Simulated scan of single mutants.
Amino acid sequence: MDTRSAAAATSGLGSRIQHRRLALGLSTAEVAERTGLSARRIEHIETRPFVLTGAELVQLAHALDSTVDDLTGPHTPFGVRRAPLTPVLQPMRRDECLALVEAADVGRIAYRGADELVVIPVNYCYHDNLILFRTAADSAVAQYDLEPIAFELDSFDEGMHDGWSVLINGKVRPATDLESDAAYGRVEPWAGGRRDTCLAIEPHQITGRRIRSW
């Protein structure tokens, strides 16, 4: 089961959802209203192969006065609890971590400020084995030349109890002209304003962990 979705092919999830809806005397339109999904989506889930996100699964469980465990587990009478999901924490290989870093564009940086630790989100790009981001010239991190810094990104599916996180430890420095050109072309800070100073994080350690629930 991946971190974003659950396949309907597992143990007739669609038929269990339909069975529970009918047992409650609800129409597809009523379930749609309870979940915020469309009636067509509910009908598709019940009758055809589909991919269900964790958020949709949680919404359906609530709408059907059930639980995620009851909907996804072996076919047992509703109200009879099965064993809970068993989480497994797995380390990730460096290449797996870098693939996730390359695919995303928002992470968090952590560094020591004047009086305390600071953690802030940043837009970034991964270029030539570096994390590149843009900031204001007068920001605290822009003055933080050649000091230790951490960069982190993660993704979680609360419905499926799955997720992953990647942590990069290294040092931050001003970007070179070529690196700045790459950052200007690929990084657009959401915060807006003048963010003309480009910084580069040179990684010295890259680690990651993944949680899978079975």
Rank of each mutant, 00 (worst) to 15 (best):
M1I: 10
D2T: 12
T3P: 08
T3L: 06
A8T: 10
A8K: 11
A8D: 02
S11I: 10
S11F: 10
S11A: 12
L13M: 13
L13Q: 00
S15I: 06
R16I: 02
I17E: 03
R21P: 14
L24P: 05
G25Q: 08
S27W: 12
S27D: 06
A29E: 15
V31D: 09
A32W: 13
R34C: 02
G36V: 07
G36Y: 07
L37I: 07
S38K: 02
S38C: 09
R40H: 09
R41M: 14
E43H: 12
E43Q: 15
I45P: 11
T47G: 11
R48C: 02
F50C: 15
F50K: 00
V51T: 14
V51K: 05
A55W: 05
E56W: 01
L57M: 10
V58Q: 14
L60I: 12
L60K: 06
H62N: 10
T67C: 08
D69W: 00
D69M: 09
D70C: 05
L71N: 06
T72F: 07
T72D: 07
T72I: 07
G73H: 08
H75S: 06
T76A: 12
P77G: 09
P77R: 15
F78T: 15
G79N: 07
R81N: 13
R82W: 05
A83S: 13
P84S: 13
P84Y: 12
T86E: 15
V88T: 14
Q90P: 01
Q90E: 13
R94H: 14
C97W: 04
A99E: 14
L100Q: 11
L100N: 09
A103Q: 10
G107V: 01
R108C: 01
R108L: 14
R108A: 05
I109V: 15
I109L: 14
Y111Q: 04
R112I: 11
D115F: 04
D115G: 09
D115W: 05
E116Y: 06
L117R: 11
V118P: 11
V118K: 05
V119Q: 14
N123K: 09
C125I: 02
C125V: 02
C125N: 06
H127F: 14
D128F: 00
N129S: 13
N129P: 00
L130H: 15
L132N: 03
F133W: 09
R134D: 05
T135Q: 10
A136Q: 09
D138K: 12
Q143C: 11
L146C: 15
L146G: 03
I149L: 15
I149N: 03
I149Q: 01
I149C: 07
F151I: 05
E152S: 13
L153I: 04
D154G: 03
S155I: 04
F156W: 12
F156L: 13
D157V: 03
M160T: 11
H161C: 07
G163L: 03
G163V: 08
G163W: 08
W164D: 04
V166T: 01
N169V: 15
K171G: 08
V172C: 04
A175C: 03
S180F: 05
A182E: 03
Y184N: 06
Y184M: 07
E188D: 14
W190D: 02
G192S: 12
G192Q: 10
C198E: 01
L199W: 06
I201W: 08
H204P: 07
H204L: 07
Q205T: 13
T207E: 09
T207L: 00
G208Y: 10
G208S: 04
R209Y: 09
I211E: 00
S213K: 05
S213G: 13
S213N: 12
W214G: 13
W214T: 09
